[in-house]
Design a protein around this nucleic acid. Sequence first.
DNA 1: TATCTTACATAGCTCAGCTATGTATCGGTC
DNA 2: GACCGATACATAGCTGAGCTATGTAAGATA
Lengths: 155, 155
Amino acid sequence: MNNESAPTQELSDLLSDLVSVTHRLTRIAARATGETTSPATWRTLSVLSTFGPMRLGELAKQSRVTQPTMTKIVANLNELEWIRRIADVDDARAWQIALAPKGVKALGEWRARLGQALAPLFDDLDHDQIETISRAVDLLHECTDVRASDVVRAA
Amino acid sequence: MNNESAPTQELSDLLSDLVSVTHRLTRIAARATGETTSPATWRTLSVLSTFGPMRLGELAKQSRVTQPTMTKIVANLNELEWIRRIADVDDARAWQIALAPKGVKALGEWRARLGQALAPLFDDLDHDQIETISRAVDLLHECTDVRASDVVRAA
DNA sequence: TATCTTACATAGCTCAGCTATGTATCGGTC
DNA sequence: GACCGATACATAGCTGAGCTATGTAAGATA
């Protein structure tokens, strides 16, 4: 049926499994932490934390939401003072969105809450298994971070 | 504080990273497939496919939604004829929910759509990397499938 | 058979994210 | 330097998922 590298059918199964299981994981996380802030908001802060300040439109693409949705998210974050809006010197239409100190703190606390909530489920794993998950997460990052080449497709 | 296996701080970071990146993945999937059916519905069908028929309440716990939400989902699935409701012979209050042939078909088609939509992102991965993700998915399944012992916590 | 508990259904709410559209600015052309 | 299509963000309004609170009917137990 196959020689040795991943055939399409298996890849489909793997990816749909991945989506299913991670959906479950995020539901567990959402309920366990009694989270009120939306996932997209945390995604947005994570993106800013990883990549540094960027324009609202860019942020929308990275966080995989539409631009109007990002406008709302940024407005909320601004009220919380978790981000700062910096006027773009080159383009009066645009803003640079930057993580503010309060945002850094909030992101850290969220990560801790999440960790505490989920850690019990992973108690039985040994070091190698954790390592496997860790490498998988890195790979997923590489595959889903928006690069210049693949921004568009859905946009 | 810790000897050598995963310290708490790193585990927190890993898990929150995992949640972030997989949220992004599910958003990509949702937008790429133009999906109208809710994630919870697919989760429900996946659970039925994996574990076989079960009661509505059990299904709610496995899919990590509340019971009223599952009542709605099952009602929708019933109209689509993707599941069958089988009266429980031992308990007239309860139903066994079973995957119907149309549901099996729909689930397969969803997996294929998802695979097609996401596969391009994973084109660059080699066999070993796919294998890593695959093992991670298995581990996540083990950690998030509801067992008798840990059903409750959030419920 | 009276009562407590359990399994599912119903009602109504909130909020995230969408589409469609508006407004202001940029870049190029005449 | 005035016009015009393209671009960046804002606003309006809608849909739908999932929640809490509560109702109804059937089991379990005394």
